[in-house]
């Protein structure tokens, strides 16, 4: 319950700190892409708008999570706000969960707003709005749910700069796990196979959530895959938050 109170505060702070300026930037990018890039395409204007729209939603969501999430805990430690909050009858787990849920709520509202702009852009151009786009966007939300947990995990014990760098590295490697496995298979190297196994076990397999290409090119996205991706996102985030709590409980506020 107290984590919900802090989540509301985190959300309110983010909104009033004009984080939704990123949504405006997204809208601008989408408009510019239809105006500048579309004339260069031959008969595929709709696909370009769709591709750019879906990819940009993911990109801007990632930027928001990195920018807001990386400094979220550190700022409160730096300004000693955390000491006031933790002196109240609230556990450190509640504090961390509050931060996570607040950031997730901000992410959700921001993605919803960008989806609305994207739907408008589709209606105004030749792009066809398909309900399956919502599946792709839902999967992107699952992906960002994991990335938000990664940000909270790193921010529970390190600095904002390192949190951003580590999260970005996790994001990049998380998308390359499939490639790493294929590479290990092709080379037949035992070391590569082990590296791929460790990566798959420790790092989030973010490629699992990428169904944009399938959706844009009308390829089927199986419901089992979607359910597994949702379960994976929830489990991975829960485990990461539990580890974050263990680290955060030991943290001293000097």
């Amino acid at each position: 319950m107290k984590s919900i109170l802090l989540a509301t505060t985190t959300f309110r702070e983010a909104v009033r700190d004009r984080v939704f300026g990123l949504v405006a930037a997204f809208g601008l990018l989408l408009v510019l892409s239809t105006v500048i890039i579309s004339p260069l395409t031959v008969g595929a204007r709709g696909k370009i708008v769709t591709d750019i729209g879906l990819a940009s939603i993911s990109l801007f969501s990632l930027l928001m999570v990195l920018f807001v999430g990386s400094g979220m805990v550190h700022k409160e430690i730096d300004r000693r706000t955390i000491m006031t909050i933790l002196s109240k009858p609230i556990s450190r787990l509640d504090y961390l969960l509050g931060k996570y849920l607040g950031l997730w709520a901000t992410l959700f509202v921001m993605m919803a707003a960008m989806t609305l702009i994207f739907a408008c852009a589709c209606a105004l151009t030749e792009a066809e709005w398909k309900p399956t786009y919502l599946v792709a966007l839902g999967m992107a939300l699952c992906e960002m749910t994991v990335v938000t947990a990664v940000v909270v995990f790193f921010s529970s014990f390190t600095t904002p700069v390192l949190t951003s760098l580590f999260t970005l590295a996790t994001f990049i490697v998380g998308h390359a796990i499939g490639d790493l496995e294929r590479f290990a298979m092709v080379t037949g190297s035992a070391g590569m196979e082990r590296a791929a196994d460790i990566s798959r076990f420790v790092l989030p397999n973010l490629d699992l959530f990428n169904v944009r290409n399938a959706v844009v090119h009308d390829l089927p996205v199986h419901s089992e895959h979607v359910v597994w991706a949702v379960v994976y996102a929830l489990l991975y985030s829960a485990v990461l938050l539990a580890i974050s709590d263990l680290l955060f409980r030991r943290r001293e506020f000097k």
Binding site: T9, E13, M83, T84, I85, P89
Partner: peptide
Amino acid sequence: KRRLGYLPENPYFYDHLTAREFLHLAARL
């Protein structure tokens, strides 16, 4: 913690909350 109140040195709280909102949060906590 239920039996104490704490005022830090040079306190800074949530910039974008109003005084009433912040005290409301503190009371709810």
